[in-house]
Design a protein around this nucleic acid. Sequence first.
DNA 1: GTGAACATGTAACAAGTTACATGATTGA
DNA 2: TCAATCATGTAACTTGTTACATGTTCAC
Lengths: 187, 187
Amino acid sequence: MAMNVKILVLGVLAFGEASGYEIKKMIEEGRFSYMIDASFGSIYPALTQLHGEGLLSVRAEEQSGKPAKKVYCITSAGRSALTRALAVEPAWDKFKSEFLFQILLADFMDVPLLSQAIKTQIDHLEHDLSEIAKCAHDVDPASGHHFAQGYGRAVLQAGIAYLQQNGADFLARRNNALPAGHAGDNE
Amino acid sequence: MAMNVKILVLGVLAFGEASGYEIKKMIEEGRFSYMIDASFGSIYPALTQLHGEGLLSVRAEEQSGKPAKKVYCITSAGRSALTRALAVEPAWDKFKSEFLFQILLADFMDVPLLSQAIKTQIDHLEHDLSEIAKCAHDVDPASGHHFAQGYGRAVLQAGIAYLQQNGADFLARRNNALPAGHAGDNE
DNA sequence: GTGAACATGTAACAAGTTACATGATTGA
DNA sequence: TCAATCATGTAACTTGTTACATGTTCAC
């Protein structure tokens, strides 16, 4: 479905009007936080383009005690465009996990480093879990937000449980098998 | 840890020598298949660069019945470079799931489309699961490969279970709540 | 007065994909 | 002969990030 910053911004604005700065905050902290990243350098040009295409309307808003901001609001054309974008088959979810890449190449890491990597991964997963918990109150059980949160929670908890139940065992085997250095060292 | 095609190629070659064409196949079908993608347009230049840096050695191999190929082999300098790359904190795993993005914006999708999206997601997860099962035999239980497979299996199964247990319910609520069109339509 | 949060934008750069360009060999 | 698989490589293009550039207001 060609997920890019423009579609992402359109999606965020579907939940309510916002400025570029606020969109960045929402992506960092809100419902989208555990799935996506985008920088100012891509958000601002995307807003300009979407406005040029008539998919957003703008309004300058003066604020007392803060610099003025440009509040963008999705138009009906924008909603149609979003609907069309969402109707396309989504791209396959690849894990794209650097942690898993490390684990696959565990032979090239010593046990303390590996142990640290697993601990850090658990921390990351638990952090994402707490982010979901943070905005879980007052979510309509019929909403996509609620369903997405449940999915995220299930997957994150499974990852944490696996690492907690098997991590120590894996590290112990590593310790016995290869006290030092890395395997297959021939050149 | 700055995961890029060069590090990926180095990682693949850590399991044994291969040509660019074979590396692509391994990324598509082998142990790395459920986490990463890379095209010829990035693999070949990466191989050239890594060879130029002395991290790989090359050997031209004539084949009867097939075009000649260049077989690359990781050098000890390459192994050191890989070890150094793996020692850096891995980047945070973001879900980066287009499926989840769709679900979050379920208000902009009709129920049949949503139902299809959930079915397709289950199919994708089950496909990845079967890919893991395919190369699960004869894997050393002390290896990173085994541990990574277990992690992948746990996470994939949790996702499938959640969708199977809650998907129908979610769709039913959608049907009752919004028989047609999308919510919050004001412009 | 100085750093932090708020606010917007651009330009250089990085990284990878797609499409192109080429060519061998096999089997239908 | 024509498609498929094997095999390597380049160039244009897309997409997004980082760093830069600028400015307000508040709290310490």
